[in-house]
Simulated assay, not measured.
Amino acid sequence: MVKAYAAQMASSPLAPFEITRRAPGPEDVQIAILYCGVCHSDLHTARNEWHNTIYPSVPGHEIVGRVVAVGERVSRFKVGDLAGVGCMVDSCGHCASCAEGEEQYCENGFTGTYNGPDAGGGNTYGGYSHNIVVKESFVLHIKHDEKELAAVAPLLCAGITTYSPLRHWRVGPGMKVGIVGLGGLGHMGVKIAHAMGAHVVLFTTSPSKAADGRRLGADEVCLSSDPAQMAARAGSLDYILNTVAAPHRLEDYLQLLRRDGTMTLVGAPENPHPSPNVFSLIMKRRSLAGSLIGGIRETQEMLDFCARHGIVSDIETIRMDYINTAYERMLKSDVKYRFVIDMATL
């Protein structure tokens, strides 16, 4: 049995729980979890806000740890290696998306690190636990210095969620890029877009975040609640990454794009955004898009990119038994900018 923390129902707090992990098979890697980031998706799932939770639910898909066992066919990992696990632990492996290394868009549905179902038809349990067993093809190498390991954990979701669209829409030098929101996702978007060489404009409703935004790599900070500041940037941006996970007026940001500009949504609100005016799109051939994490190949690329550029998440490390308080603080945006659980406290 493996110690974990689980929600038993939507209305119950997370509490100690024991789960069973499978014994490592020939292609499996067993990881002793050292740190696990806390994602807003964890809260959505624990409280069944997306109406698809399988209980008991053990959240956590920003996992870093040390390999403690490998199957006989495993070739890329050995005992003692640092390793990570992100949002997926399996996919069909044979559809067009999987064949192209885009497992997150698996046409038969990828298997989530938690809230499965797993290959045996049960429920997958995530990183709020002492260890995890994952097939080698879904395990990632960690190349950061070990002393940064806690701050690496959020890269497995927040990092790839922002890196993937920035990479897909070819953000780089000479581009003016907007990042909407400075939270767990937004602060990673600012860091990564800056490292890619873009001119970064942070949009926030919080004047108090301006200095932090510049520290993280923003070249400009725009208070989005100020109509004059927004109007001054109309038609000036090549690309916008919108990380806000609460309903808001997309129209206000579409107006900031140049002709042929794109705004990509990565936040997943509980309720829909108000529909934008179609003329905001058709008059400038603008695009409104969405993006979901990245495939395993791209996630490894992101981790390597972040290691080369010295990028980690800004974190607050917490004990496992603080998780319910952390959820309430997360709802109030009272964290800079990601909680990470020290699993030694479980």
Rank of each mutant, 00 (worst) to 15 (best):
G235V: 15
V278W: 07
R73C: 13
T161I: 05
E103M: 04
R22L: 10
V278M: 13
Q255E: 14
G290R: 01
G310T: 02
P173G: 06
P56S: 04
I315R: 09
R233Q: 15
T205H: 14
A4D: 06
E49P: 00
Y5F: 15
V200P: 12
L149W: 04
A198W: 00
V221P: 13
T162S: 06
T317C: 13
V335S: 11
E298P: 06
A151M: 02
V79F: 11
I296A: 12
K3A: 14
E220P: 05
H144P: 11
A7Y: 06
L34H: 01
H40N: 02
H141C: 04
A193T: 07
P274S: 12
P269Q: 13
D342T: 05
G71V: 07
M302R: 11
L185D: 10
M9L: 08
E298R: 07
G37W: 09
I315S: 07
S91N: 07
A69I: 00
G122H: 15
R329H: 13
G310P: 01
P276Y: 10
D90H: 08
I33G: 03
H273S: 09
I318S: 13
E316F: 03
V58A: 12
G86P: 11
G80D: 12
P274W: 14
A4M: 08
V171H: 02
R329Q: 09
C87H: 04
A46W: 05
E18M: 06
F279V: 14
S57N: 09
L265H: 04
D145Q: 12
N324F: 09
T345R: 06
T204P: 14
V200M: 07
H141I: 04
E100N: 15
Y105M: 06
N115Y: 08
S11T: 15
E146C: 08
L292T: 14
P227M: 13
E301T: 14
A10D: 06
L140R: 09
V133K: 06
Q229K: 03
G86A: 08
P173D: 01
A228S: 06
A150K: 04
G172P: 05
S280P: 00
T264L: 03
K147A: 08
M320F: 13
P165G: 01
A198S: 09
